[in-house]
Deep mutational scan, measured.
Amino acid sequence: MIINNLKLIREKKKISQSELAALLEVSRQTINGIEKNKYNPSLQLALKIAYYLNTPLEDIFQWQ
């Protein structure tokens, strides 16, 4: 199972779901689904999230 800290990191950086979704060219619902662990992002999307949040990938997504 993958645990993610996306919501915590996104809120710490004061970025809304809508703003992050626009940067990543995905829907706000996609961001919401990832934050709620409804599904895991593709590797490409995970890397883009880490890039736009300027945060190491392993700080956002962790195996458990």
Results as ranks from 00 to 15, higher is better:
residue 3 I to S: 10
residue 51 Y to R: 10
residue 60 I to W: 03
residue 7 K to V: 08
residue 22 A to K: 11
residue 47 L to Y: 12
residue 16 S to E: 06
residue 18 S to K: 10
residue 45 L to K: 02
residue 28 R to H: 15
residue 7 K to I: 05
residue 63 W to A: 04
residue 55 T to E: 11
residue 13 K to N: 13
residue 43 L to E: 10
residue 20 L to Y: 01
residue 44 Q to H: 13
residue 60 I to Y: 01
residue 2 I to R: 08
residue 30 T to R: 08
residue 19 E to A: 13
residue 45 L to Y: 03
residue 22 A to L: 11
residue 31 I to R: 01
residue 53 L to Q: 01
residue 48 K to M: 10
residue 61 F to N: 00
residue 44 Q to R: 10
residue 11 E to A: 08
residue 18 S to E: 15
residue 50 A to V: 05
residue 23 L to N: 13
residue 28 R to L: 15
residue 34 I to R: 00
residue 19 E to S: 09
residue 39 Y to I: 15
residue 46 A to P: 00
residue 36 K to I: 14
residue 10 R to A: 02
residue 17 Q to W: 03
residue 25 E to I: 07
residue 3 I to H: 09
residue 25 E to S: 13
residue 15 I to D: 00
residue 63 W to G: 04
residue 9 I to R: 04
residue 3 I to D: 05
residue 52 Y to E: 09
residue 17 Q to I: 13
residue 13 K to C: 08
residue 12 K to R: 15
residue 43 L to W: 11
residue 26 V to S: 04
residue 5 N to G: 03
residue 10 R to G: 01
residue 33 G to H: 14
residue 57 L to S: 05
residue 31 I to K: 00
residue 7 K to N: 06
residue 47 L to Q: 14
residue 4 N to Y: 02
residue 28 R to E: 15
residue 16 S to M: 06
residue 10 R to Q: 01
residue 55 T to R: 05
residue 43 L to M: 14
residue 31 I to Q: 01
residue 43 L to N: 08
residue 64 Q to R: 09
residue 12 K to I: 11
residue 64 Q to N: 12
residue 61 F to V: 02
residue 33 G to K: 10
residue 43 L to P: 15
residue 28 R to M: 15
residue 25 E to G: 15
residue 37 N to V: 04
residue 5 N to I: 02
residue 14 K to C: 08
residue 49 I to F: 05
residue 30 T to I: 13
residue 51 Y to S: 11
residue 35 E to Q: 02
residue 53 L to G: 00
residue 31 I to M: 04
residue 50 A to D: 00
residue 61 F to D: 00
residue 61 F to S: 01
residue 64 Q to T: 14
residue 59 D to A: 12
residue 8 L to Y: 12
residue 5 N to C: 05
residue 47 L to W: 09
residue 53 L to S: 01
residue 17 Q to P: 05
residue 14 K to S: 12
residue 61 F to A: 01
residue 56 P to D: 10
residue 38 K to W: 12
residue 6 L to A: 03
residue 20 L to H: 00
residue 6 L to T: 03
residue 26 V to C: 07
residue 12 K to Q: 15
residue 39 Y to E: 12
residue 28 R to D: 15
residue 22 A to R: 13
residue 48 K to E: 07
residue 5 N to P: 01
residue 25 E to M: 15
residue 59 D to I: 07
residue 11 E to H: 08
residue 18 S to P: 08
residue 31 I to A: 02
residue 42 S to L: 03
residue 3 I to T: 14
residue 59 D to C: 08
residue 54 N to S: 11
residue 57 L to N: 02
residue 26 V to P: 00
residue 6 L to C: 05
residue 48 K to F: 04
residue 59 D to P: 01
residue 62 Q to H: 08
residue 4 N to R: 02
residue 56 P to T: 06
residue 40 N to R: 09
residue 47 L to N: 15
residue 28 R to F: 14
residue 47 L to I: 14
residue 20 L to P: 00
residue 16 S to D: 06
residue 1 M to E: 05
residue 31 I to D: 00
residue 32 N to A: 09
